[in-house]
């Protein structure tokens, strides 16, 4: 059970979480060379649920998401303050190894980014470098099945991943992340580069995955957020405006800005 102080959450107008939390953000602030991108954001991530982060472009939602598995480490001059608690451990504590963080918290990116290797190797590479040796084939099959891609690729596992369509590539990237059996799966607008049919495919997939995975998804597509997620965080200009159950955010938001945004009056 993650630790977070109820007062902090309430001060942001956040309703108490009814589910078990797996991750908690506490006053997370992120800045690029001194320029604030995210300021003092706090909310919990519920286990085996889908949490979506919505907001207009440039509101800091992707930056926030990338902070959750220390992908921001690769951008020069980024400073992260506050705490991100995962299993009683602050992900930004000095003794934490970012590689270890990313083994437990996987990520799927905005544009499909399969390695220019075979389909099989794309899935097997992560577990392979992390010391897995036996029953790799079963793991690849299982991951591709979970990502609803197995039937389409089972006869061409040795072909280059670049021969797949965009939607297939993105599902391959999901399979690649799933093969690490992550506790949490972060998704950064995973459908923004895809056509509607592929998008539907992936939404369907996410819905099925949440029985065994915790998913955090950043999206600018409000229909998507309302369709698939259990919790929603709404951000604007680096601030968390409102966090709550998705149904509540979309039907009776507490904040006026939230209402204006979800009803499409701006953004």
């Amino acid at each position: 059970m993650a630790e977070f102080t109820p007062t902090q959450l309430q001060s942001k107008g956040v309703t108490q979480l009814q589910d078990q939390a797996i991750l908690a953000l506490q006053d997370v602030s992120i800045s690029y060379s001194g320029k604030a991108a995210v300021s003092k954001v706090s909310f919990p991530i519920a286990k085996h649920k889908i949490t979506s982060v919505i907001g207009p472009s440039g509101c800091g939602k992707s930056t926030l998401l990338r902070a959750l598995n220390r992908m921001n480490d690769f951008i020069p001059n980024v400073t992260t303050e506050g705490k991100i608690i995962y299993n009683r451990q602050d992900l930004y504590a000095a003794e934490v190894d970012p590689v270890e963080v990313r083994r437990n918290i996987g990520m799927v990116f905005q544009k499909p980014n399969p390695f220019p290797k075979t389909i099989y190797k794309n899935v097997a590479w992560g577990p392979g470098i992390n010391g897995r040796k036996d029953s790799m084939h079963e793991l690849v099959e299982k991951s591709l099945k979970q990502a609803a891609l197995w039937e389409e690729v089972k006869d061409r596992l040795d072909e280059s991943a670049l021969s797949l369509s965009g939607g297939q590539q993105q599902r391959l990237c999901i399979a690649r992340a799933l093969a690490m059996a992550p506790d949490i799966l972060l998704m950064d607008e995973p459908c923004s580069a895809l056509d509607p049919i592929s998008t539907a495919h992936i939404e369907d997939l996410l819905y099925r995955l949440k029985s065994s995975y915790t998913i955090v998804i950043v999206t600018h597509n409000m229909q998507q957020a309302s369709r698939i997620s259990d919790y929603t965080a709404f951000m604007e200009m680096g601030d968390l405006i409102e966090f709550g159950k998705t149904r509540q955010i979309f039907t009776k938001p507490h904040k006026q800005r939230t209402e204006e945004y979800v009803t499409g009056r701006f953004g």
């Binding site: 009683r88 451990q89 934490v96 190894d97 590689v99």
Partner: peptide, 19 residues
């Protein structure tokens, strides 16, 4: 599935240090 800690995989731990 039980949640694993960041330090839970002790066998992988030493190999990670090597990596």
């Amino acid at each position: 599935m039980a949640p694993r800690g960041i330090h839970a995989r002790s066998t992988a731990e030493t190999s990670l240090r090597k990596r």
